[in-house]
């Protein structure tokens, strides 16, 4: 497995994890009273901390992090500029939701707006990583994969903070996301094999990798069997899911073949 752009692996994964947690938090009753009061605050706080960690990681892939504020200057055309703005707004809304929750004990509307903006941020992020340079990804697949990551990681990790009432909903969301994720992750390499040379090489990289199959088993098959058997998210399931997503994201950045690698050969 080739590890490339690890800072981007962390940024995208942590950012999507934060969005997923925000979506699941927005599904909960937003009154911070009673026995689940502490857990609701922690739920939003963890989402915010993950986003901050992701944003810090993103600075490490810049040659000159000092110029990062200038990335907002090309909003008219650059999806990267839009990604910075979208995650910035999402972060501000997360902070506002948490502060409101601390002060007044409710933050339902703000939280839902934060979750909606988070989904937009994930889609915008998907556009950044769908460039012509990588024919295998120059389509809708990064958007779908990123959104799936948000739902899989969000629902799995939210099980640590949710009260008993929300657990069946989280179990359902995780099960559906894992089934969709399993199907898409099995179909994508086959579709790539039918593409141009760079896409074919990408498909071969994935299908011949032991990490790819390990991810399929650890992130999808075992958790799905566990969910079916236990009817709830066991405490070890999020660990497997996070590991699987990490492997998947490393392969996303390291095993997808750039078009320039095929110059001079059959396309």
């Amino acid at each position: 497995m080739v590890i490339k752009d690890f800072s981007l692996v962390l940024f995208t994964m942590l950012g999507q994890m934060a969005v997923g947690l925000a979506i699941m938090a927005a599904l909960r009753p937003q009154t911070a009273e009673g026995p689940s009061e502490g857990k609701l605050k922690t739920h939003w706080l963890v989402a915010g901390c993950l986003l901050v960690a992701g944003l810090i990681a993103s600075f490490f892939h810049l040659g000159h992090p000092g110029g990062s504020v200038l990335t907002l200057t090309h909003l008219s055309n650059s999806w990267l500029s839009r990604e910075v703005l979208a995650f910035g707004v999402f972060g501000a809304l997360l902070a506002a939701t948490w502060l409101t929750l601390l002060k007044s004990g409710t933050g339902s509307l703000l939280g839902r707006i934060a979750a909606a903006v988070g989904i937009i941020a994930v889609l915008v992020s998907g556009m950044v990583y769908a460039p012509p340079g990588f024919p295998a990804l120059n389509n809708i697949s990064p958007l779908v994969l990123f959104l799936l990551t948000a739902f899989i990681l969000g629902s799995a990790l939210a099980s640590y903070f949710a009260d008993d009432k929300l657990q069946p909903t989280l179990t359902m969301v995780l099960a559906v996301s894992l089934i969709v994720g399993l199907v898409i992750n099995l179909l994508l390499p086959s579709m790539w094999l039918a593409g141009n040379k760079a896409a074919q090489m990408t498909g071969q990289n994935f299908l011949s990798s032991g990490w790819f199959w390990a991810r399929i088993v650890l992130e999808f098959v075992i958790p799905l069997v566990a969910l079916a058997a236990m009817k709830k998210i066991a405490v070890w399931v999020p660990v497997l899911v996070v590991f699987g997503e990490l492997v998947g994201r490393i392969m996303f950045f390291g095993s997808v073949v750039h078009s320039a690698a095929t110059i001079g050969g059959l396309q």
């Binding site: 000092g66 200038l70 990335t71 012509p132 024919p135 320039a260």
Partner: peptide, 16 residues
């Protein structure tokens, strides 16, 4: 002078 080394152009250009 303006470049911040984000690598987005490097990833995007299909001709490398």
């Amino acid at each position: 002078d303006k470049c911040i080394g984000c690598g987005n152009c490097i990833r995007s250009c299909p001709y490398g």
